[in-house]
């Protein structure tokens, strides 16, 4: 008993015991699938057997025009979501933190509720709203505005618009919460001293809020890059499956799903996953280095 107690009270051992559950689940659910994905990407997996094929899956990806479309779509989507989902939530967060807005709790809840709804249900509703038929919600609105009707989910531009609307609807509130928590961490004394120095509201935002929100912004940027590249559910629900006209809604993960799951080509699907991993890691490492996240502290 004493030994047992000593073991757990030992300052050397205890930390490892505490992190063990995380390490185990991390190894089991993340490291292991990653390794097996890498192995599988060099294999051709059929119901009757598994065969090593070297780089064949990757060389096929180079020639696969559908995959290229998927990459392009994911990139466009990611960039546009960055443009929309960082400035606007930041703005909303600042508004929520200011004295300009009444009933803050209500507005916060309004913006956050979409993130709590099931994508399956909201996606289905959005699909019906974007129906090309004249009775679809969006077409009713555009007709009312005198713009005529659109085949929303058939054309590239309108399809992407629909996706972005769903995305903004869903994630604005979440990003806003990140920024609000970032704002809470900013010392109010800084604003007071800025007031004393005669700074305008814009100057306070530009020279106090933005620089001090940088860690939060970098975090949001990092997860948004990955979330944008790995988007799947929104497009899957909007087009009721991984297929869309002219592949306008096909994303990298959508293609992974289509190959790996629908067509049961797990080897090829794994190769798609590896490419996604490499792209997302590369972009984020470059972005983090440029933002100075890995730099040594100067203080």
């Amino acid at each position: 008993m004493n030994k047992f107690k000593k073991f757990f009270y030992s300052q050397k051992v205890a930390p490892y015991v505490f992190v063990l559950p995380f390490i185990l689940s991390f190894a089991f659910f993340w490291i292991y699938p990653l390794c097996s994905t890498i192995t599988m990407s060099f294999q051709d997996i059929t119901p009757t057997g598994t065969e090593w094929v070297g780089l064949k899956n990757f060389s096929k990806l180079l020639k696969d025009t559908v995959f290229h479309t998927a990459i392009l779509n994911s990139f466009e989507y990611m960039i546009l979501t960055l443009v929309l989902l960082i400035p606007f939530p930041m703005l909303f967060a600042v508004l929520m933190d200011s004295r300009l807005v009444k009933a803050k709790g209500f507005w916060k809840a309004c913006l956050y509720v979409p993130a709590l709804t099931s994508v399956v249900i909201s996606g289905t509703l959005f699909r019906l709203m974007f129906s090309e038929y004249a009775t679809g919600q969006m077409n009713v609105i555009t007709t009312f505005l005198g713009l005529g009707t659109f085949k929303w989910l058939k054309m590239k531009a309108t399809g992407l618009t629909a996706l972005l609307i769903v995305c903004c609807w869903r994630w604005t509130g979440v990003n806003m919460l990140y920024f609000i928590s970032g704002l809470k961490a900013i010392d109010t004394a800084l604003y007071e001293s800025a007031d004393i120095d005669g700074a305008t509201a814009w100057q306070k935002f530009r020279y106090v809020t933005i620089p001090l929100l940088k860690p939060t912004t970098i975090y949001v940027l990092t997860i948004s890059v990955y979330a944008g590249l790995s988007m799947f559910m929104e497009s899957y629900m909007l087009w009721a499956g991984p297929d869309s006209p002219n592949n306008i809604g096909l994303t990298i993960v959508g293609y992974l799903y289509k190959r790996g799951i629908t067509k049961n080509q797990l080897g090829y699907g794994s190769a798609v996953g590896i490419v996604l991993l490499v792209i997302a890691l590369a972009i984020n490492i470059v972005q983090l280095v440029l933002n100075g996240t890995f730099k040594k502290e100067e203080d």
Binding site: F26, I31, L34, S36, Y257, G260, I261, S270, G273, L277
Partner: peptide
């Protein structure tokens, strides 16, 4: 951040091996 990033990437890729939950993978 690095841990968050790597782990989320891993979770996404894990989907290909563990197909039962891929739809909710992202």
């Amino acid at each position: 951040l690095s841990v968050a990033m790597v782990s989320s990437v891993l979770a996404g890729c894990g989907g290909s091996g563990d197909s039962a939950s891929t739809e909710s993978g992202s």
